[in-house]
């Protein structure tokens, strides 16, 4: 049990390193989830209202991203995005830059999240009762106001379980960035573990941290869902 001292915050302990890793993980998870929501909203809108070419391209995007392992997408996008940005910079006569791990991580995981979010939001949009939309149109509501007042509140409760799932995937997918050497929680844990040889202590501690994040966000999302469904009848449909 003397290995527990290794988790303390002052220098012989690695607690501070782990917490810095957790901060990086959460930063990327939040950024990727947000980017995924933006891409997902655009994607869902395009899939429902876009032309035939938009729809086909979007279904290619969602199919490919959901069938190819995240690890490979991360590597392709990580090298690809860095290359592309540098080539553009060089074409405009600038210096080559090293893209920060956080920015690359958010972009890559955000694109992955976007594919899943497209499907979640599309399902929720389809489930909004058509009568509500027609009533709003009949009252002469402008489209943006209708989206804000009618469609968004209606679909929020329906989309919440799927979005909660996506957020959990986002937090766990940040661990994949450890493979490209970005210093998030799992990478920091492995560094600490292989330096001190206290593998069980550190991996268990990191597992506990991830579990706390998961349980807390599960609780938070359940509360948001209850709030979003506050206007609905208790036994809807059943």
């Amino acid at each position: 049990m003397e290995t527990l001292g290794l988790l303390s915050f002052s220098p012989p302990g690695w607690g501070a390193t782990l917490l810095a890793g957790l901060w990086n993980s959460l930063l990327i998870a939040v950024g990727a989830f947000g980017l995924g929501l933006i891409l997902g909203t655009l994607g869902a809108w395009g899939k429902l209202h876009g032309g035939p070419i938009t729809r086909d391209l979007l279904s290619m995007y969602t199919t490919i991203v959901r069938a190819v392992p995240e690890l490979i997408l991360i590597l392709i996008l990580y090298f690809g995005v860095t290359d592309l940005v540098n080539q553009i910079l060089i074409a405009f006569g600038h210096e080559r830059v090293q893209i920060s791990g956080v920015a690359a991580g958010i972009t890559v995981l955000g694109i992955v999240q976007g594919a899943y979010a497209t499907e979640v939001l599309r399902g929720a949009l389809l489930a909004v009762p058509q009568g509500q939309v027609e009533a709003a149109k009949a009252m002469g509501m402008p489209p943006l106001l209708m989206a804000r007042r009618i469609i968004f509140p209606c679909m929020l409760g329906l989309a919440m379980p799927g979005l909660a799932n996506l957020w959990l995937i986002a937090t766990k997918d940040t661990a994949l960035l450890a493979v490209v050497g970005f210093s998030e929680l799992t990478f920091a844990t492995r560094q600490a573990a292989s330096t001190t040889k206290a593998f069980f202590t550190f991996f268990m501690a990191a597992g506990a941290i991830y579990l706390i994040v998961t349980l807390l966000s599960g609780w938070a999302f359940a509360r948001i869902e209850r709030w979003a469904r506050r206007g609905e009848p208790r036994n809807a449909g059943g």
Partner: peptide
């Protein structure tokens, strides 16, 4: 609730 990579390691 925990990443698979962590479980594997």
């Amino acid at each position: 609730g925990t990443p698979l990579l962590l479980q594997i390691w």
